[in-house]
Design a protein around this nucleic acid. Structure first.
Lengths: 113, 113
DNA sequence: TACCTATTTCGATGAATGTCTATACGGAAG
DNA sequence: CTTCCGTATAGACATTCATCGAAATAGGTA
């Protein structure tokens, strides 16, 4: 169930085929990345200097309703790409760099030669 | 329209936010990766020593109908992850390592420190 | 030309997804 | 305690997607 564990146990695509369970876990994460809005949200959070972004900062960057943004944040959080913390009235989202790093390693190609 | 070009022009997520056009292009590729069957197909092709895989070899690895496999191959090909070549009666699929490499770079995190 | 085989395309169906509006929750301030 | 602000959830709707069976296409062979 722990997606990060599945990612850690999955070999790079170029080394050996994924089994069904690994593929199912990895696919969940990529599916979360397969939406333009979520990609932009993730890049906003990932590139933020302090590492934290308030939800209100994100909703301001899109023409979408607040619940829609909240839904996308939830999806990114469920697959382990983001975490959230509430402080006072605001909720701050933060990147989980380990998850992103595992994905990057999974796709890495060992030099085309 | 060239997805590989879009990938090449898209900065790593951790460096700067994607604009709408970049996000749309990148999302198409990740969406293609967001299916367990396609991930397994891609890993089969990517890890194959000779670099080439016949469609008949792929269908044998799944419990799915042959047209379904063909559909997934088409999706992977449309986003630039695979290419195909016909020789005699058989079609051989091959990985496009540049596309995978661009994706890996996009997700790369510069060391969490 | 006709035939065989491997592959792709077509049409349909049930499930999943993105978006919205309306509502509920949680903390802060009068 | 009541009200307000920011955020999350619930329900609904239209669209997209994965899968299948059946039919069509393409290469090679004779």
């Amino acid at each position: 169930m722990e997606l990060l564990e599945i990612l850690e146990c999955s070999p790079p695509l170029a080394r050996e085929p994924l089994d069904a369970e690994q593929a199912a876990g990895v696919a969940r994460v990529f599916k979360a990345l397969g939406d333009p809005v979520r990609l932009r949200i993730l890049s906003i959070v990932a590139s933020r200097a302090g590492g934290e972004v308030c939800v209100c900062d994100i909703t301001g960057a899109f023409e979408l309703s607040q619940p829609t943004i909240s839904h996308h944040l939830k999806v990114l959080k469920e697959v382990g790409l983001l975490t959230s913390e509430r402080r006072a009235s605001w909720v701050y989202y933060r990147l989980v760099p380990e998850t992103l790093g595992e994905l990057s390693a999974l796709l890495d190609v060992p030099a085309t030669v």
